[in-house]
Each structure stands twice: as structure tokens, then as C-alpha cells.
Write a protein that binds this DNA or RNA. Structure first.
Lengths: 250, 250
DNA sequence: AAGTGGTCTAGACCACTGC
DNA sequence: CAGTGGTCTAGACCACTTA
């Protein structure tokens, strides 16, 4: 006979109150000391209940202010046609096209541009040997000045050498416009999509609270000859992004 | 001046030891009491360090045994062509085709089959009004007897009525073979892909440890006339599934 | 200054595992 | 039975926010 622990019972009651709307998004929960008093437990026990809800992504403690029900930030929809030609022809990179279609302000910070050895997973996708030289462009994407994507793009050295990929903005239409000028027209792409908890570094860069996973996308672009000419590793906070795909079935 | 808390420092050191391989997958970490002794802290402080790593999905405590570095279970790859006709012609439903291609044993449990009112998100995707009658088929998918997917399929009443969708297995090739017999040939599908932490119910059904998010997929199937004839809500443990997509770019 | 969450201590007892 | 994690207590001090 083992009865439910007090911390779990408190968490269950608070969760119920959250889902049924007693505490709506942005509402402030009773303080830890208050919970402890009203349930007749030690403060640490009430605190443990909060920790459970936090791990589920339901609440967000704010130091010195209180514990609040997490608000749902606006979702950035990354559409299957974000790489479509028509966006590029309008002079807009995929990310910018998507964000501005939602009436939000897009900003891109190029964190670093540097050559280096290709990690194994990059090499295999680009048809290189592990350790071969590639150019790595690291980007942070922001919508309304809030970080919403990390993207690391790997370009084979044979393509990057002598190109403008060393500049922050190689072309007005984004890097795909520059690939096209270099003879690599995006014809097809392949994506692996997964999810996991963020690393501490990622959580910091993306201002991620606990209980918010990230969507991880490994993207490979192929040109008109079927050659892989670029690989990008995306890390997207799951509370601010959805991916959409539309496919024909043969 | 605020220095890093002891629990975080312990977590950082353990994390480093995990990523650099000192503690490989399946390895046992020092016990909480041992950590407390060697770092000169209270047991609760060492315990908090473990909790941090647990929330990151790196370790998994086992009651009475110790704390272990999480093993990477084999990944189930859900390919973009899992709905392809050739699988159906071979008499295999999408899930079974994918699992058996990996040499694993597929099993499906139909948890329930019952009519009910369409939730809003289902109705809008099926072109119905919220509350309209639909048939809900709830499924649990297992690979090698380990739960790997939850799938709730919603079928408009106009299609379900009088059909074999009330039977566990309407057709040998799966439900899509039966849709086809009823005049709805899968021609195109649309998917929204996101991620979040599991609800307590989902965590229980899928045997999910803390620190493991789920991938959430809202799938809509369209027939040769462009009519949405089925909506499925997938919940996939992120440590056991990846999705792959391949798309042409126009 | 008062109230909040963040961290920590030094204990205690329980539940589970494995020898 | 010894060792492990799970839960809890009753306190303490710190860091931060708000008024």
C-alpha cells in the first residue's frame, strides 16, 4: 500500500486547475509558502509540486515575482514550401518570407563564419569524408527580436572557396540565391525531424525555460544534378515553432 | 557577484563526464550519498544535480539500483513515403511496413473504437462543424513489444457509417486499403509537426522517463477529389522516433 | 521592507533491489 | 541486510522584484 505522495497530489490539483481554466495563461499561482500552509506541508514539498509542473512545461517560476502559468507564444509555421522559388524571386530568404507573412519583424544574426572539418553526419550527407574541409555559417534567427531558431549551415569547401559565402549577406535573396548564381539550383530537399531537450548552451541562446523541448531538423539540399550542396542543422524551440509538410502520395 | 550553485557545478561535472565518455550509455553514476560525500554537500544538493541531468534526458534513476546514463534506443524512422501505395499493395499498413523494414516485430493494439463529437481542430481539418459526429479509433503501436506511437484517427461519420471501420482490422492492408475500397484513394497528405513534454497520461502509456519529449503530428489525408477523409493525431516518444521528409522544390 | 523564488543543510523514514 | 533512490521536514540565508 503506497499512497500518492503529497507533492504529486498538490501538482495534480494545480494541473487540474490549470487545464480547466481556473488558472489561465499568465495567471499567478499561489506562492510556495502559501501552498505549503494551505496543504499543511513543508515549503520544499510545495516547491517539489511546482517543479513537476515546470518539467511538464505548464508553469514558469519568475524569481522574486511568483509562479505563472506559461503563455502560449505565437507559433511560427515553417511551411513545406518555405524554400520555394517564388520567395527567392521576391528577394526573400526562406526565414524572412515565413516571418513577414505573419506580420512579424525578421532579423538574422550571423554568429560566425568559419572553415573547419566536417563532422561525420555532415560529411555523409554531403558525400564527403569525415574531416574534409567545410565552411560553417552559424545563424541566430529572431522574430520580433525574440530568438526562434538556431541554424548551422555547412557548405563543401569546393563550393565555398572563392565565393561570397564568407560575407554576412552574400546576396540580397539569401544564401540560396547565391548557390543558384554558383550553378546549384535547389531542386529537392531531405529532412530528418526529431525532438529532444535542449543542451544548457541552447537553452541559454534561445532563452528556453525548463520543460520546453527543441525540434531538431537535419536539412540537406540537392541541386538539379542530384548533388547535395548544403546541409543545415536547425534547432527550434518547440513552444514557438511548428513545421508543416504537404506531400503527394504515389 | 554570484557564484555557480553547488548543485549546478556537480551537474556540470557529471555532464562533462557523460559527454566525453567517462560514463558511457548504461553506465552507473556514483550514488547520491557518495556524490554528497565527495563534494562535501548535503545529500539533497547532490540529488538536485541528478535532477538537472534527468530533466535534460541524460540520466535515468532506477529505484533501489542507482542512477544510469540513458541508453539510446533504436530509432524508428518514419519515412515520407510510409503512406506509399506499394506498401499497401504488399498488404502492409504504413506502420507495419516501416517497422518490418527494420527487422523489428510490429504490433498494434486498438485501444478503442467509438463514435463521438469532433473536436474543433478535427472538424476544421475535415471540413465539418465542431461537434459533428465522427468515429474515433485509438491505437497503440508497438515495436518489439515496446510502445512507440499513440495514434488517434478521426473519420467523418458520413464515411464511417455502415463501413468496417468499427472492426479492429477492417482490411488486411490496414485502414487505408478500406478507405480505398470505399472510394477514397490517398493522393496527398498534410502534416503539422511539433514537440512538447508529454502529459502524465501519455508518459504512462508510453513508459516515458522524465526528460523525454514527444513529437506531435497532426496528419490529414486527402483523396483524389481533394477531400479530407481522415485526420490522425500521432504522439511519438522523441527518443524512439524520427520523421523523414523528401520534397521537390518548385 | 516585505514578499517571492533559489539554494542549501542535516537529518528522518519509506520503498525497492540485490546479495 | 546493506545500499540505493523517493519523499519529507524545519529551518536558514541569498537574490530578485515591487512598492
Amino acid at each position: 500500500m503506497s499512497e500518492t505522495p503529497a507533492s504529486r497530489r498538490i501538482a495534480d490539483m494545480l494541473r487540474e486547475a490549470i487545464v480547466n481554466g481556473t488558472f489561465g495563461p499568465g495567471a499567478k499561482l499561489p506562492s510556495e509558502r502559501e501552498l505549503a500552509r494551505s496543504y499543511g506541508t513543508a515549503r520544499n514539498t510545495a516547491r517539489q509540486a511546482i517543479a513537476i509542473l515546470q518539467a511538464e512545461g505548464l508553469v514558469e517560476p519568475e524569481h522574486g515575482r511568483g509562479v505563472y502559468v506559461r503563455r502560449r507564444p505565437p507559433l511560427l509555421r515553417l511551411s513545406h514550401d518555405r524554400y520555394s522559388r517564388r520567395h527567392r524571386e521576391a528577394g526573400k530568404a526562406p526565414f524572412r518570407a515565413e516571418v513577414e507573412a505573419q506580420g512579424r519583424k525578421a532579423r538574422v544574426e550571423v554568429t560566425s563564419i568559419a572553415p573547419g572539418p566536417a563532422p561525420g553526419w555532415v560529411a555523409s550527407r554531403l558525400g564527403l569524408a569525415a574531416g574534409d574541409r567545410v565552411l560553417l555559417r552559424r545563424n541566430l534567427y529572431l522574430a520580433d527580436d525574440e530568438p526562434v531558431q538556431l541554424a548551422d549551415t555547412y557548405i563543401p569547401w569546393a563550393i565555398a572557396e572563392g565565393s561570397r559565402f564568407f560575407e554576412e549577406l552574400p546576396e540580397a535573396g539569401g544564401i540560396f540565391a547565391h548557390f543558384e548564381r554558383l550553378g546549384h539550383q535547389l531542386t529537392r530537399f531531405y529532412e530528418d525531424v526529431g525532438a529532444r531537450m535542449p543542451s544548457p548552451d541552447e537553452a541559454k541562446s534561445l532563452y528556453l525555460g525548463r520543460g520546453v523541448p527543441v525540434i531538431e531538423v537535419f536539412h540537406t539540399s540537392f541541386d538539379q544534378d542530384g548533388t547535395a550542396f548544403e546541409v543545415t542543422h536547425f534547432v527550434l524551440p518547440a513552444d514557438r515553432n511548428v513545421l508543416t509538410f504537404e506531400l503527394p502520395v504515389s
